Computed example of a mutant assay.
Amino acid sequence: MSVKVNRSVSDQFCLYKMPRLINKVKGKGNGIKAVIVKTVDVAKALNRPPTYPTKYFGCVLGAQTQFDVKNDHYIVSGSHEAKKLQDMLDAFIKKFVLCPECENPETDLHVNPKKQTIGNSCKACGYQGMLDTHPKLCTFILKNPPENNDSGTGKKEKEKKNRKGKDKENGSVSSSETPPPPSPNEISPPPHAVEEEEDEEWGKGTTEEAQRHRMDEISDHAKVLTLSGDLERTVEERVNILFDFVKKKKEEDIIDSSDKEIIAEAERLDVKAMSPLVLIEVLFNEKIREQIKKYRRHFLRFCHNKKAQWHLLHGLECVVVMHQAQLLSMIPHILMEMYDADLLEEEVIISWSEKASKKHISKKLAKEIHVKAEPFIKWLKEAEE
C-alpha cells in the first residue's frame, strides 16, 4: 500500500507517492532491533539514499543503526512501532526532501564536504537554497554525500574534461594556442567596480534589524566552522570536550534530563563508543550501585554495541581505583547491577574476564578486580549453560 510523500496534502489525485513504511522487530534483550522493510523503495520515491532516513531514525531515537546495502537491510536497534517510524519519516521529508517554497518533493541535494555546506534545489519551481547544517543528520550527509552529488571540484573537473573533448572533436584551438580577443560585450568590469557593487550590497540595510540579521548569519557561519573544526582534533581532545560538556551539565544540576543532549554531542564529536568511559568518570563514585539505577537511561543510549560496553568496563576499573577501599569487594554486585540493567552482555563480560588489561589501571589492581569478579563470572557461565 502506498501513501503520499507529503501526507499533509489533501489532494486525492496527488502523484507523489511512496510505499508505506513496514518494520519487523527481531531479537530480544540487548539484541532487539527493528529491520525496516522496503527502505530502498521509499528512498527511491524521495530521491535520497536509503541510509539517510535510517540514520535520521537513529539520531532522533538515540539508537544505533546498521546498513547492509548489499542485502538491502537497514536496521535501527530497539523495538519501534511502524506508525512511530512513519511519523519520523514525515519529519525527515519535511526537513530534507520537500521544497520550502512549493512543498513538492522534486528536489536534489548538493553536498560540498570541503565547504561544509548542503544545498537544495527544486526542479518544480526552480528554488535554490541552503540547508541548516546544525541537525545531527547533516554531519552524516556531509561525510556520505549522494552518489549523484554534483557539487564541489568533481563536477568542475568533469565539465573541464568534457569541454576539452568537445574542443578536440570540433577542431577548436587547444589551451596552448592563443584564444581570440573577447568582444566588447564580454570584457569583464575592472576589479574596483565589482568591489563597489559588493560594498553597495552590504550597505543596503543599515537598520538595526538588517544589522542583526547580518550578525546572525556571521554567528551561524562561525558555529559551523567550530563544529567542523572539532572533528579535526585528535580523539583524546574530542573525548575531553565531551568530558567538559557532561561535567558542566552535572555542575548546573541538569544532568538528569540531559541524556539526549549528551548523545547528540558525542555523535557530533564522533566519540559515541567511548562515551560510557566519560559518563562513568563524571557520574559514578563510591555509591555506584545506586547511581547505575539513577543514570541507566544515559548509559542505555550508548551501550548497544560491544565496543561501548568494553569502555564501560574499563571505566568501572577506573572508578574502583579511586574508591578502592569501598568498591573492590563489591565488584560482583556492581557487575550484576550492570548486567541486570542491560548495560552489559554476557559475551562481553566473559571476554573481559579472560585477560586483565593495564591500559587504564595498573596490572596488579586489574588482576585483583578480575579475582573479585570470579564468583559472578562463574555464575554467568553456569547460567548460560
Rank of each mutant, 00 (worst) to 15 (best):
V224S: 14
N240R: 13
A373E: 05
F245P: 03
C99Y: 02
C125N: 07
H213M: 12
M322F: 00
K84P: 01
P375Y: 13
S353Q: 12
D87N: 12
S2R: 12
K358M: 12
M18S: 06
V282E: 05
I22V: 14
L279M: 06
M130V: 15
E147G: 15
K223T: 09
F284R: 07
S228H: 09
N30V: 02
G229P: 01
V235Q: 10
C125H: 06
V111Y: 04
V5T: 04
S8M: 09
L300C: 07
L89A: 07
A273D: 03
E252M: 07
D11C: 09
D244L: 10
D340Y: 05
H304Y: 13
Y74D: 04
G203S: 13
E209K: 14
Q291K: 14
A63P: 01
D216H: 11
E236F: 05
K381Q: 15
E195W: 09
L365Y: 06
G205N: 12
A63C: 05
A43E: 03
L344C: 02
E346Q: 09
T153E: 12
Q211K: 15
L46Y: 00
N120A: 02
N47A: 09
K260I: 12
E384F: 11
K307Q: 06
M130Q: 15
E147N: 15
H333N: 14
Q66A: 07
R297I: 05
L242A: 05
E251Q: 11
A82R: 01
P113I: 10
Q86A: 07
G129W: 04
E345A: 01
K363W: 11
A366N: 07
R7H: 08
E186S: 08
V321H: 08
N285M: 07
F299E: 03
E382Y: 08
K287H: 13
K248N: 15
S77D: 09
R214I: 10
V76W: 01
Q324P: 02
K307C: 00
S8G: 08
G154D: 07
S172A: 14
G205A: 09
S275I: 05
V9K: 10
L142P: 01
P145A: 04
V97C: 02
K287T: 00
E251Y: 10
E236G: 08
D340N: 12
I93L: 01
E159L: 15
S8H: 10
R20V: 02
M274N: 10
I331T: 06
S188M: 11
S174W: 06
L269F: 06
D41S: 13
E354S: 12
K248F: 10
P332C: 03
C122T: 11
E237C: 03
A264S: 12
E384P: 00
V320I: 15
R233N: 13
G152D: 05
I36F: 00
N112T: 11
D216V: 07
G31P: 02
D72G: 02
N170E: 15
H134S: 13
Y52R: 02
N305I: 05
L21E: 01
F96Y: 12
K84Q: 11
V76Q: 03
I93P: 03
K358W: 11
I280Q: 05
F67N: 01
A264C: 08
E196L: 15
F96W: 09
E147K: 15
